[in-house]
């Protein structure tokens, strides 16, 4: 009697996907379909809803928002504004957004995960280097002066009410807006690369909808600032004449759209390259990676941002797995990206 009388163990597909993602992927591919039941070069459908009414009516500090849905993954991206004083001349020609990405996946602790940090950094750099936001459009328009009158508060702007405006020399400082983006990802189901595509899409979409407000300071400045004395540890309040900048939320008609360099159809697409299960010399190009198997078994990846004019904004290429990235595959991927830019993602 042989001692190695082992029974064959079989696993249901979802278990196999977890314990041996590469085997599961290979079996699917040999059937001519991907584990997420899409074709090799099929993208997941995307749903975008920009400038959510309910959020923006309730919160005056949201200046643009974009909600992107792809499969079960939902991204809520909201843009808020900060202001920074302009010092000196050594200014960059282009601005960017400052994204904080949070992916809900049940991990505790304050520190962001690697994935969140990578996504944030990638978005920041891509938007900066794509020269989407010229610095001039972030300049704050001349600051208005709020004057308390009997029937409430009136705000005079030097460029709008020239005749009524009384120039004041104290606030000739120039300011720039800082665009802060907060991205929350729910039900993450796609790979990091696809998530970047969705986040980029939501950022571009929100930026295009972004309307900048006017700022003003009050005429009578009585700001109390808490200061810590060097001699004692108690805090005291002192009056300063440091003006506090206010956002003119009452006059939404003065809001103006930001001028951007975003070319129409700026879309990011991602690709994975994997060895063909039938022919070892051949590689297969898969688009829009999604799911456990593809995330962990495909290590050769490409990410391409193109626009409607046909030019390429960014290519990132990692040849990490056993699928070789050939010039042909790269050409194919660029063609698919261009087509997608032309046709749109919806």
């Amino acid at each position: 009697m042989s001692s190695a009388d082992l029974k064959q163990v079989s696993f249901p597909p979802d278990v196999l996907a977890r314990i041996a993602p590469d085997v599961s992927l290979e079996r699917h591919l040999s059937l001519g379909i991907r584990p997420n039941l899409r074709n090799f070069t099929e993208f997941n459908s995307i749903d975008i809803k920009s400038n959510n009414q309910q959020l923006q009516e309730n919160y005056n500090n949201i200046f643009a928002s974009s909600i992107v849905k792809s499969g079960p993954t939902t991204i809520i991206n909201t843009l808020t504004l900060g202001v920074v004083e302009n010092y000196g001349q050594d200014k960059d020609k282009y601005g960017t957004v400052y994204p904080v990405v949070e992916i809900l996946r049940g991990r505790m602790g304050g520190a962001p995960t690697d994935e969140e940090m990578i996504l944030g950094q990638d978005l920041y750099e891509t938007i900066y280097h794509s020269k989407l936001i010229p610095n001039e459009s972030l300049q704050v328009k001349p600051i208005g002066l709020g004057i308390k009158e009997e029937d409430g508060e009136t705000i005079y702007y030097p460029d709008l009410q020239e005749a009524d405006y009384i120039p004041q020399s104290e606030h000739e400082k120039s300011y720039s807006f800082v665009i802060l983006s907060s991205i929350k990802v729910y039900s993450k189901h796609t790979s990091t690369n696809s998530l970047f595509d969705l986040c980029y899409l939501s950022c571009v979409d929100a930026l295009q909808k972004l309307k900048l407000p006017r700022l003003y300071i009050m005429d009578s400045i009585q700001t109390k600032v808490s200061v810590k004395s060097k001699k004692s540890t108690t805090r005291g309040l002192i009056s300063t004449n440091k003006a506090e900048l206010n956002i003119d939320t009452a006059n939404k008609q003065h809001y103006y759209s930001i001028e951007l360099n975003i070319k129409e159809g700026s879309i990011s697409s991602n690709y994975g390259i994997v060895k063909s299960p039938d022919n070892n010399d051949e590689s297969i190009l898969l688009t829009d990676l999604q799911g456990q198997e593809e995330e962990s078994a495909i290590l050769s990846r490409m990410s391409i941002i193109t626009n409607k004019t046909g030019s390429i904004n960014r290519i990132s290429l990692i040849n990490g797995g056993d699928g070789d990235i050939s010039l042909e595959l790269l050409r194919d991927a660029i063609e698919i990206s261009k087509r997608r830019s032309k046709e749109g993602v919806m």
Binding site: N61, G82, V84, E85, Y98, V100, Y124, L180, L245, I247
Partner: peptide, 14 residues
């Protein structure tokens, strides 16, 4: 986290 320039101030929203 990429929180923006260090001297960023949040303008007051009435």
């Amino acid at each position: 986290r990429i929180l923006g320039p260090a001297n960023t101030v949040t303008p007051n929203i009435p």
